[in-house]
Design a protein around this nucleic acid. Structure first.
Lengths: 339, 339
DNA sequence: TCTGGCACTCTGCGCGGGCGAGTGCCAGGA
DNA sequence: TCCTGGCACTCGCCCGCGCAGAGTGCCAGA
């Protein structure tokens, strides 16, 4: 069905269209790529490609534009990931090395990705599922209010206010604090609930509701905070999207405001280095039907901590973008492993 | 120079233009507002207003559009801040009440502001410099390493590692923790050093260097961490900006990516409730020449903790926006005071 | 000082024609 | 069998034209 030449034609179409943002015709194609055949032949191939749904003609007398399916084939079989140049790699390395803390690493990564790809960059905070509890602190703020402070072995601190169902005595609080730390200190997040589930029984029946309230808040904190945070940047690059502005850009901006959507977009976790490309309608979210997402897992060592990626028009430079995303992910992983 | 009627005309022009987004002519003006005079009279007034630079004519045969100066006059003398409706206030209250921690309060505030005003919302995290100490926690990590956790009355948490000059015993740590909290709890940051300066003398000479090390780290934390954080949202509302899209929106998006610019935009701090409006060219930043910023200080009690506000086109509903911004600021202040 | 009338200006819009890019098809040649 | 050159055709884009409508400025009169 698709011989070598047809694939070459498709590749050429994608490349040209990405460059010019205009439908590409048979004549221009043979001029810019030495395909070794005449425009007429290319036209036949194009007709075949169109029949198979890889390209599409906006109007009868216009050139061809790749479809989502066409981009998909291009990404899967035709594109070679373009590695970054040595100076670029050095710049990345240097830029990330000067980060002072986790927030800074993430912020810099976002900037970097946005600048390199000239698209919208999204970076998920490293997952804490491998973290463990260093210390849990409880502070009575008011008779029925307790502040819970969780300190992780990575130095991260999370705090929550617990509304207790009954007044909490200072002795109970101290007891609970001691027992919590005895049972949970050094334990990895996912295992904490199991270690603590019997804890309420160590207390007087009157105090158990309070203990349970504190515990459930703690569990929530362990789970929730872990995966949720995302930072994004480079939204100004959306202005390079297309000429038919507001309609294209609005749903994208709306999507970007929803953490949930962003998280789903980055997709299920995968091994570090595993690059995922979702093209146009392959994204569940409707507003992103004309965008593609290139994402990759990053992590220290062989375990994936989180994902990062970029969001851009389906008409994007896939090889370049994939190269940049991968490179950044690798360096971020290294930085995190070192610190 | 500007009699009552001219002011009424200006007010009417601003109101109509904000509503319709189209230059407003004399005839439409007398039809929609009962000014009690004929279009011809209004035209004369308009000519005068234009001479004084309050309004402007895009083309010879077009209606008038307010200038920055016109909006300024409107805001200063003609606009009455529109209070929110009772249901709206209830909704705000309810929405903010369900926040679980500081991050959540800020995030919800941003969403709220963006939705209420249908513009881009910006919320600065409560500043540390005006906060007071709620609790200081010390954790021995290693013989000569102590983690210092500072919890502020606004729910913010800062942590530092202290390198002690000598091994620190658990009893000393407990003693220090107790004394620190006794002396500093509830005290405003700037006054903390004075309260604690004699503290080392309460300890054995051997332990004093350790105490001093902890104290100096604490003082540093109080002062240093001025790096103000900002959260923004509602960027999708930018798409309602104008019809001449990319050119208007791009510099705005670029500005919004720069924390520094945002901080400058919110401006110098002021008392809580003090509403500031910067119109068009009154903003230093060039890219925001066709936007206005409505900002207000918020805080618990009578002291301003930080600012929040919205950014929108100069052609915005100032009374409504100011009302919403003020109301949200007041509620956020309350929430922070309670927690 | 306000009003009604009048002439004038300018933008926006719809219309129609010409241009050009690009196509599909076909017959001839390797 | 596959490629090529040629040819007729289609259709979107651009340009210029003219018209309608909104809005103005000015002036004379109340």
């Amino acid at each position: 069905m698709l011989d070598e030449r047809k694939l070459a034609v498709l590749r050429a179409i994608v490349q040209d269209y990405v460059g010019t943002e205009e439908p590409v015709g048979s004549k221009a194609l043979v001029e810019r790529h030495n395909l070794g055949v005449s425009p007429a032949t290319v036209r036949n191939d194009m007709a075949a490609l169109e029949d198979d749904g890889y390209i599409h003609q906006p109007h009868t007398s216009a050139g061809r534009v790749p479809t989502d399916k066409g981009y998909r084939l291009f990404v899967d079989r035709l594109a070679e990931v373009k590695p970054l140049s040595a100076p670029e790699r050095r710049a990345i390395r240097h830029f990330l090395d000067s980060a002072v803390d986790l927030d800074d690493v993430v912020a810099r990564t976002v900037r970097l990705l946005a600048q390199l790809t000239r698209q919208v960059a999204v970076v998920q905070y490293p997952s804490l599922s491998r973290s463990s509890v260093r210390h849990v602190e409880l502070l009575g703020l008011a008779p029925t209010k307790v502040m819970l402070v969780l300190i992780t072995n990575t130095g991260r601190v999370e705090q929550r206010i617990v509304d207790a169902p009954a007044p909490v005595g200072e002795t109970v609080l101290a007891d609970l604090r001691a027992r919590l730390n005895a049972a949970a200190a050094g334990v990895r997040f996912p295992e904490v609930p199991a270690r603590l589930q019997d804890l309420p029984e160590a207390f007087e029946p009157d105090d158990r509701p309070v203990v349970s309230a504190v515990l459930s808040t703690l569990f929530e904190t362990l789970v929730e905070r872990t995966e949720e945070r995302i930072m994004l940047g480079g939204t100004a690059n959306l202005t390079r999207f297309g000429h038919d502005f507001p309609l294209t850009i609005r749903p994208v901006l709306e999507a970007l405001e929803e953490q949930v959507v962003l998280l789903r977009l980055l997709g299920e976790t995968a091994e570090p280095g595993m690059t995922t490309v979702r093209i146009g309608h392959e994204n569940d979210y409707e507003g992103l039907n004309s965008t593609s997402v290139v994402s990759v897992g990053y992590g220290s060592g062989d375990e994936s901590l989180a994902k990062l990626g970029v969001i851009g028009p389906t008409r994007m430079d896939y090889p370049g973008t994939m190269g940049a995303v991968r490179a950044v992910a690798r360096y971020v992983g290294q930085i995190l492993a070192e610190s």
